[in-house]
Design a protein around this nucleic acid. Structure first.
Lengths: 144, 144
DNA sequence: AAATTAAAGGATAATTTTGTCCTTTAATAT
DNA sequence: ATATTAAAGGACAAAATTATCCTTTAATTT
């Protein structure tokens, strides 16, 4: 569904959100350990998230990553997915056709459209804030 | 969403279905041309479909691929997807966790579950027969 | 200002997915 | 029986994704 990079991105963002809510800025090592991801690879992903203004990064001692509390409800899963995987999953054809539309649909177009739109809606309506709450409250988990 | 292999598999199966409904057995070259896929790569995929009893293959002169008409309504999209991509898309966690369950859910578990189940249901209830009709009737397309 | 800390970024490597080529096997037709 | 046809299968290659290592840049602390 999502690329590995995107999975890491979502996990990392949620973890950073939890920590930011507690007033903590977190470093790469911390994040990679917490979400069980390769450190250097995770660094690249965090860079992308930072460039896309999904997270903030601070260099130097006591540096690290954080998310502005006021922005946290604004950030939706869809933005993370778009930033890392692009928007093929929201807009793309189920069979990968470039030109697949209402007037020239592929065989699965109508059936696929329904699912794709529901996925899109779900991602657009799910905030990082919301997901971080479940994690902070111990209702959800980022590792086994 | 689906791998390239799986996209080819679905396209090929639908095309074979249309031809089988018209009493034609079709060869690899024909299929690859029609669905705009690399020939040798498509051959591998057709082998997998054949091994999984989704299509039948016949060697030698006038050989090729076909689908039993009586079986055609039985074959669902879900079987093609399972055969080629496995069942991660039906069962897997949205964030890729091995152990993600109701009692130990990942942060997106509840929201993702809904979409995944709808996708599963759609694929399980969509027959190749059904999709081949739209194509045969000129309502849907396998190329631009 | 100098030393230290941590992210940014470039280069490279491993793995997986996608794609190609060539030989073998099995069926049909002559 | 032999030749021909077309799928099956093995080995290999290219491309994309995932992952690692090392240097540079930008902060903070001393």
């Amino acid at each position: 569904m999502f690329s590995k990079s995107c999975e890491y991105a979502i996990k990392a963002t949620i973890y950073i959100a939890v920590q930011s809510n507690q007033g903590n800025r977190v470093g790469l090592k911390d994040i990679a350990r917490e979400i069980a991801s390769p450190e250097a690879f995770t660094a690249k992903i965090l860079q992308q998230l930072s460039r896309n203004h999904i997270i903030d990064s601070v260099k130097g001692p006591n540096g690290g990553f954080q998310i502005d509390k006021k922005e946290m409800t604004r950030i939706k899963l869809s933005q993370i997915v778009s930033a890392i995987d692009g928007d093929a999953i929201f807009k793309g054809c189920g069979l990968g056709f470039k030109e697949c539309s209402e007037k020239k649909p592929c065989p699965v177009h109508d059936k696929f459209k329904v699912i794709r739109n529901e996925l899109k809606t779900m991602l657009e309506n799910t905030s990082v804030q919301e997901l971080s709450l479940g994690l902070a409250n111990g209702l959800t988990f980022l590792h086994r």
